[in-house]
């Protein structure tokens, strides 16, 4: 309840502050046609490219960060020897403790020069693809570098949440799969992933949330321009993100320019809200479907055979995961599909 009030308060503040800039005519208003906001006919022309830049950089970061993060989580939870797993898990958690300005400096000093040969190569050989269109950057301050650093920054969030979810996979599910002759990877596909799917989605979306709002690293690393562009390795065509744009221009902004920047912040707020709602719909939608159709075709999977008649393990299952036991309780027997699947082993 308190959180709702705070959230509503923030939204109200953003809306009230932003209204003067949103309603103003940017081409004639003397405070808005100079400095950082010069050259835009109205608020929407200004915020549009920023929204694109925010989503674009976060999407690239997610493209690199999510598979790696989930992979690391899986390695820690199911492959690594116990001692290595705890060290690795600890290290990844530490990654979350590094301040974003340090990531920014790391990006400037290490990642930018490191990526220069790659971007030169991409421009020379794949320059005909719009993504890698030139002119290629000579300082390395590209959105590619920024997004890669972002990917590292969202890694600990995705990894630690997925790891926790993976570790919660009921042991019986896993052992059942193994007992049926599944290899470890098959076991993960049959028992762990179905169980953890919604958790992985939430982890990824939390990572996305972090990537959307990340300010300092992006502000330091990329050479921004307020335009819509998909170019990855140029100097002057990197779409700026909302958060970095606010950080860069707030100090010199005049009163109306501040309102305009707060307006872009409102848009970021709306985007984050949308991302969260989508996450809820995805997670909640799956649950809803399951309760409606009673039988979920895949997630209880092979293990539905295991606890049948085994009171102790059924109770244990109930304790470990309230969610899938509901599915099991409703499950009256293997579906034909499961039979076919099971027959393979």
């Amino acid at each position: 309840m308190l959180i709702m009030i705070i959230l509503a308060g923030v939204a109200l503040f953003l809306i009230i502050s932003a209204i003067p800039a949103i309603t103003a005519d940017w081409s004639t208003e003397s405070q808005l046609n100079t400095g950082p906001t010069a050259g835009f006919p109205n608020f929407w022309a200004y915020v549009g490219p920023l929204i694109w830049g925010t989503l674009w950089s976060a999407a690239i970061a997610l493209l690199f960060g999510a598979p790696i993060g989930i992979g690391i989580a899986l390695f820690i939870s199911h492959y690594a020897p116990r001692r290595l797993a705890s060290i690795l898990g600890y290290l990844v958690d530490l990654l979350a403790a590094v301040p974003s300005i340090v990531f920014g400096l790391w990006g400037i000093i290490v990642i930018r020069p490191f990526l220069l040969p790659l971007s030169d190569w991409l421009a020379a050989n794949l320059g005909w693809i719009p993504l890698f269109g030139g002119p290629v950057s000579t300082t390395g301050s590209t959105i590619l570098a920024g997004a890669l650093v972002l990917a590292v920054m969202i890694l600990p969030i995705i990894t630690s949440i997925s790891r926790e979810i993976f570790l919660q996979t009921p042991r019986l599910h896993e052992e059942a799969a193994l007992a049926l002759g599944a290899t470890r990877w098959e076991m993960i596909r049959m028992a762990v992933f179905p169980y953890a799917k919604s958790g992985i989605v939430s982890a990824t979306l939390l990572g996305l949330g972090r990537a959307l709002g990340e300010t300092m690293a992006i502000a330091l690393i990329i050479s921004p321009a307020i335009l819509v562009s998909v170019n990855l390795i140029t100097e002057g065509k990197n779409s700026q993100t909302i958060a970095a744009n606010i950080a860069l221009n707030f100090p010199i902004a005049t009163t109306l320019q501040r309102d305009a920047l707060i307006g872009t912040g409102l848009m970021l707020f709306v985007i984050s809200l949308a991302v969260n709602s989508i996450a809820r719909v995805i997670v909640g939608g799956r649950k809803g479907k399951r309760t409606k159709s009673k039988v979920s075709p895949k997630s209880p999977g092979p293990l539905s055979r295991v606890p049948a008649g085994d009171f102790a393990s059924a109770t244990a299952l109930d304790v470990v995961s309230g969610r899938s036991s509901a599915g099991i309780a409703d499950d009256e027997g293997p579906t034909p599909e499961e039979d076919i699947e099971g027959a393979r082993y």
Binding site: A225, L227, T234, L248
Partner: peptide, 20 residues
């Protein structure tokens, strides 16, 4: 015009701060 924000668009490398 003279401005506190760099007015040139195009192949410009924009960096944060003098140190950047």
């Amino acid at each position: 015009p003279a401005s506190n924000a760099w007015p040139i668009k195009g192949n410009v490398s924009s960096q944060k701060g003098g140190s950047g």
